[in-house]
Design a protein around this nucleic acid. Structure first.
Lengths: 206, 206
DNA sequence: GTCTATAGCTGGATAGAC
DNA sequence: GTCTATCCAGCTATAGAC
């Protein structure tokens, strides 16, 4: 069986990723994707039978990138606090590379929860990859202070992801107050997340 | 000039709010809204010339509710820390009443930034209503500790809003780990936000 | 593999009866 | 004010030439 042209296929995928990220499944037009890829609509259907399948490729790719960031969590040779610090770095790095990813995932997850659950099941290698389980163990063993692990995880992900999700809002706020959003601010965001982790995970308050 | 039937109009608006919140401007179908309202499509066009106008009514209403929460910020008889605490309470209360609002606003803002800027300009009464300006003044006067006000505001809004925005993700996480999301958890979220405010706005660390 | 042309459907909008 | 019927644009998807 002859392989389909790898280059056209990946060009389409890249274009689709761009358009789907921007407009979501329903907002995106096959014509937009074809234009972006520099081909015609018919070819899209040749490579990916229909819009939904093309979307699934993009969505699956996004999810698997998302979960690759969690590897560090299961590395038991490192302290839990260090693992969480590294995770937050990677998470923010990931989001600054793909700033639309978070909002894209949320949009699509909420419009099709079953699909999401199925995909996640397939991508997670084991229970060790769950931050929540690591936190629970850490609290039980006394490595980190006693607290509600769900709330901590929620707070942590909020601090990392929301600035990207809500960037239009923050841009508006900054603009309104004549403040520029720079790379320096970005570094400060990272710093504030670390500060929070130290605040919540250190045994002796500093 | 005879008034249009108030009841049908508000029924439509309520249905439209529900559907638009769930699916956004492009995802929503006029047929869905008509069904939800228990009338037919033609009536939608009778009351609100077209889809865009109907959407604008809903969107404007959402924004004005959002900004009503900010009144407290300009009340100079209360300490800044108290104002921020109250603001976060109201913000979370607002979001638990309208859990879709935040994601709805973000979606629509990012798909039409100009419209958003125009609307905000109209709703904000004065510069005093800007949290950012209050923070800046507080830092200058020494009432709150020296820090980057934009980062603080971003952190604060992240902690409050992201749990609602990303509720599908958190539901999935909890489900995966066999944890139930209850009202008790909800109260804990509020507590963790207060803890953060105390951590960042108290002069003497406690 | 890639293209043009077009079939077929969906959904917003309108005409016109009541 | 409210309805049914219908028009028409825009979009996905496919047929078929090259």
């Amino acid at each position: 069986m002859k392989l389909k042209d790898q280059n056209t296929e990946s060009t389409i995928l890249e274009a689709a990723r761009f358009i789907f990220m921007e407009k979501g499944l329903y907002g995106a037009r096959m014509q937009d994707i074809a234009n972006k890829a520099g081909i015609n609509k018919a070819l899209l259907h040749y490579y990916f039978r229909n819009k939904e399948r093309l979307f699934d490729e993009v969505f699956g790719g996004a999810l698997s990138r998302y979960f690759k960031n969690m590897d560090i969590i299961s590395d038991e040779s490192i302290s839990i606090k260090e693992r969480i610090l590294t995770y937050s770095d990677r998470f923010i790095k990931f989001l600054s590379d793909y700033p639309q990813m978070s909002i894209f995932l949320i949009k699509e997850i909420s419009s099709n929860e079953e699909l999401f659950h199925a995909k996640v099941k397939g991508l997670k290698k084991n229970e060790k990859q769950s931050i929540l389980n690591v936190l629970i163990e850490g609290i039980q063993s006394g490595e980190i202070p006693d607290q509600d692990p769900v709330i901590f995880l929620m707070n942590l992900q909020s601090l990392c992801a929301y600035p990207f999700v809500a960037s239009p809002i923050f841009n508006a706020i900054c603009q309104n107050s004549g403040i520029q959003w720079t790379d320096e601010q970005h570094a400060k965001l990272l710093y504030s997340v670390h500060e929070f982790i130290h605040f919540k995970l250190s045994k002796s308050d500093l």
